[in-house]
Design a protein around this nucleic acid. Structure first.
Lengths: 191, 191
DNA sequence: CGTTCAGTTGACTAAGGTCAATTCCCGTGG
DNA sequence: CCACGGGAATTGACCTTAGTCAACTGAACG
């Protein structure tokens, strides 16, 4: 629903209803089934998606091995921004862990909005800044935290994750093997 | 010199000379000595710096241990963007590895520019997008690459770095101990 | 009921960390 | 000009920790 996107923006950005409606009018609904690709490595990502319902997975492929970059659940934006912004092939896969409903906006529509009104340019800037700070936090955690700490942070940030995704994918996200995550969890319940 | 900033923007952003001059007029020169702080953990960063000459170091403090986040050399922007953008205390130190000359712009001046003209808003968006993609690349490398690969990437990206900074700081950047970097280097020359 | 696959557990291995000793480099002062 | 001192870098011996491999358990599904 468009209302979900409205609420998402309202939480961090004051924008007039009228302009918000123009913005929302550019989004189109998209339905994907569990296992479907939203973005495939090597192809250019030409749209940004907003997940209204469902769960998706960003993953790198390291010579055969799947490395989870991020889980994206309801009420989040998703794309390969690098591919989207620079019109170059994506370096990751984005797939659906569950049947997923999206609202998508195309690159061209977004650029058109930017030229239309400085308010949209500002939305773009604030979103880029927010994304940027999120990635910075992620890099910081990768530099400073061990797997156990990152596990605890992940489940506190996304408490429903263990119910929705298999544990071996969480292990991949943490950068450890499933056996190691199993041992981390065992140690945690003992304490 | 202002000209360095002009060139920096020219390389990735078309902006009219007139507007660029307004932008540049907001920058002030700042000189720091080797060892000086540009940003101190716990204090709010209220300005963005552009290094015209010198070398700086972003570092986290992990209970006493220094963890290098990034080296910043000539012709680069620098601040704790998270602190700068959200007006919250910085979570890292930024110090000078060498005597350093900067051009700095304040948060208020930057926000004023944003309201002045959509062109500035656009500059802000493009810079945020560029920063964002840089951090994404960094996180990707932290997830996928081992210390040896990250070392090779670092010295190919910044060939002069080994001459300018001690090796134990590079080890810290790579997330390994000085002994380990020494062994990595030994192995590399043998091959 | 049996197959399948995720998750757990144990034994072993390998890679990086730790600690200590030694060498190298460079600036300072005799 | 050379000797010395101190921090950086290297090297070796040992230890800790996560990875590997294999066996086993358990829940889900036909």
């Amino acid at each position: 629903m468009s209302e979900d996107i409205s609420q998402y923006f309202a939480q961090f950005l004051p924008i007039e209803r009228e302009k918000l409606d123009i913005f929302l009018s550019k989004f189109k609904a998209k339905s994907l089934k569990k296992g479907d690709y939203f973005i495939q490595e090597g192809q250019v990502s030409r749209e940004v998606g907003f997940i209204t319902k469902g769960a998706m997975l960003c993953a790198y492929n390291k010579n055969g091995e799947v490395i989870i970059d991020e889980f994206s659940l309801d009420k989040e934006f998703i794309t390969d921004y690098n591919s989207f912004l620079t019109n170059t092939p994506a370096d990751k896969d984005v797939t659906c862990l569950e049947d997923t409903e999206l609202m998508v906006i195309s690159y061209n529509d977004l650029q058109e909005l930017y030229t239309l009104d400085a308010a949209f340019e500002k939305v773009g800037r604030l979103m880029a800044e927010a994304l940027f700070m999120g990635w910075q936090q992620k890099a910081k955690s990768l530099m400073l935290d061990d797997a156990e700490t990152r596990y605890l942070k992940l489940i506190s940030r996304r408490p429903d994750l263990p119910q929705r995704v298999p544990q071996y994918l969480i292990a991949s996200y943490l950068g450890v093997k499933p056996e190691t995550l199993s041992r981390i969890r065992k140690k945690l319940v003992k304490n």
